[in-house]
Design a protein around this nucleic acid. Structure first.
Lengths: 208, 208
DNA sequence: ATAAAAATCACTAAAAAAGGGGAGGAGAAG
DNA sequence: CTTCTCCTCCCCTTTTTTAGTGATTTTTAT
């Protein structure tokens, strides 16, 4: 019984590379690929693969959202996250949304095969590199609350405490407290440092 | 006369993908690949390809540095930059260091072939997407001076004006002036906004 | 139900940033 | 030689942030 594999990735070269890697494998059946989330969903209405290799970065929606959507509609399909970088937050979100594993794009053929086979059996698979950095990061990962994150975002957009207070319908003192807690939680020296660290930890994004 | 192509990329899947894309091309000769800068340089001591496809992100050194090094020692080799993202600063630096072109990893087979053939003839090739965003960005790209950038970096690390002044052996007033100019040049509302915009424009990096 | 975590608000004082102005010297480019 | 940019420095005032300490009310989880 072959494992039917489908790929969602907008990088032509990666799709080709995986196809070529899997071509030689006896127990893999290539069912096709999609370059975006929409055509992936369209494909799934026609037929269901056993495993989907899913890139995190897609043009129309994030792999994280797509993962959730696919799992909700087709819980029997196993999803293997695929990405160039090893970002804890992404790995976490993918796994939270039902992915069974996460592989980096610099994986070897054997690592990829191992991952696909594990996932197809319902097991969990993380690249060694991913797994180890996931452990490391647990301690250093700053935990901010919902509200703190909201405030953090507004701070990074250049709003002052009073402007934030107005926007969130709370008093300036409250915003000030959140700000203090953020500074302390991220061990930031001041606002500038806070913004940089927040971006580094992917709590906020520098881009839009 | 076939074009001899060599690839430097640490992503196995991408290497495989390109190999498979080029396999069918008659006038391309695949001379091999390297997964890092060191083995690329080692290879070049043995034989010289016509074109090197070079990833920007390599484990041991950046493609930008490698590009410079290769061009200094083997000026006859043409280099085609390769990257997942379309970042003006990277494109610029690659071209400054002697690259003949820049292609995104979501390029199609025909686009890649077009690029290789153009570059092998000594022409310049940029992906449409890259070229257009390069033009767009010229206007919006904030121009900061050497000194301003130094100050910007220290600000983002959480130093106050007086600490920066001490570090740079200038008066606080000077640092303050630079700061004001930065705020005005980046159209930032305040320091938080400044740091975010600076990271967005790749004037500084959030990571280390 | 109850304990823990999160969100809310307040007061004080010192430090830093922001906003406005002006001004001189060095070096490059015309 | 003049113009222009960059780097340098200073004044003033107002706004904002930072730091410290303390407290009440919701929410959330067990």
């Amino acid at each position: 019984m072959k494992i039917r594999v489908f790929i969602v990735d907008d990088h032509y070269m990666v799709v080709e590379g995986i196809r070529s890697l899997l071509q030689t494998e006896q127990d893999i059946e290539w069912t096709g690929h999609a370059m975006n989330a929409a055509s992936c969903l369209a494909f799934l209405q026609q037929q269901l693969p056993d495993v989907i290799l899913m890139d995190i970065n897609l043009p129309d929606k994030s792999g994280i959202d797509l993962c959730k959507e696919v799992k909700e509609n087709y819980p029997s399909v196993f999803i293997l996250g695929l990405s160039t970088f090893n970002q804890q937050s992404f790995v976490h979100k993918m796994m939270d949304n039902g992915a069974s594993g996460y592989v980096l794009k610099n994986a070897t053929q054997s690592e990829l095969m191992e991952a696909i086979q594990a996932v197809a059996k319902g097991k969990t698979f993380l690249s060694d590199e991913v797994a180890s950095s996931l452990n490391e990061s647990k301690a250093s990962q700053p935990v901010v609350t919902r509200r703190e994150k909201e405030v953090l975002e507004l701070i990074s957009e250049g709003l002052t405490n009073s402007e934030i207070a107005e926007k969130l319908f709370v008093s300036v003192s409250t915003v000030d407290t959140h700000r203090k807690n953020l500074l302390s939680k991220l061990e930031a020296k001041n606002t500038a440092d806070l913004v940089r660290l927040a971006i580094r930890h992917h709590l906020i994004s520098a881009h839009k």
